[in-house]
């Protein structure tokens, strides 16, 4: 099963790259010219995201470096200990929606320290594999089209992130504690 999914992942882009120009050619689309015409906007789209990403990543960077993130983790950890959530994993839970790179760094560190097959190692692996970096995605996607008022998108994202966190903790306890 894994092997099959792996193969699909490996072949997906090459197949898309073959099929789309081929069908376009059969339908008498001038393939080269059309590609270039579409590709023209690539530069401006990418550049447009800079101010939005700078705003978000500066805040995330100081939040982590200042020790504010750690302080928040220390403050909440006794509370979470009662529901079986290891204090060591809390910084990861806080960083996950904010910065993909930082969260991955914390996960790697925990796996290294506690071992990949420990409860902490498996819990943090599950958490890393689930939800995406919500704030980064919102900033990038809305930024690329110049949307500044996100309405309820942040609230929805946070609801999903909290659910994923609780579900990860629950399923890890069911599957990985002996």
């Amino acid at each position: 099963m894994f092997e099959l999914i792996n193969q699909i992942s490996r072949w997906a882009i090459p197949v898309v790259l073959l099929v789309i120009p081929l069908i376009a050619f059969i339908k008498r689309v001038p393939v080269f010219e059309t590609f270039v015409e579409g590709a023209e906007e690539g530069f401006s789209t990418a550049i447009k995201t800079i101010p939005y990403l700078v705003a978000m990543l500066v805040a995330v960077s100081v939040f982590r470096a200042s020790g504010a993130m750690q302080l928040m983790a220390d403050y909440f950890s006794p509370l979470l200990d009662n529901v079986g959530f290891p204090a060591e994993v809390l910084p990861h839970a806080i960083m996950r929606p904010l910065s993909g790179g930082a969260a991955l760094g914390i996960a790697t560190d925990l796996i290294k320290t506690h071992g990949p097959d420990s409860f902490i190692g498996k819990l943090v692996s599950t958490m890393q594999g689930t939800s995406d970096t919500t704030f980064y995605v919102l900033t990038l996607y809305f930024g690329s089209v110049g949307v500044r008022r996100y309405r309820y998108a942040v609230a929805t994202g946070l609801c999903a992130d909290i659910t994923t966190l609780v579900a990860s903790l629950f399923i890890a306890h069911v599957m990985f504690t002996t």
Partner: peptide
């Protein structure tokens, strides 16, 4: 943080340009 943000945006230029070209073809077809 600002540095990382600009790096991410710049690295988007290449793949954005590529996929926009492919998508235009897909749309035309």
């Amino acid at each position: 943080g600002a540095d990382t943000a600009v790096e991410v945006s710049l690295s988007l230029i290449a793949i954005m340009t590529f996929w926009l070209g492919i998508m235009k073809l897909a749309e035309a077809a």
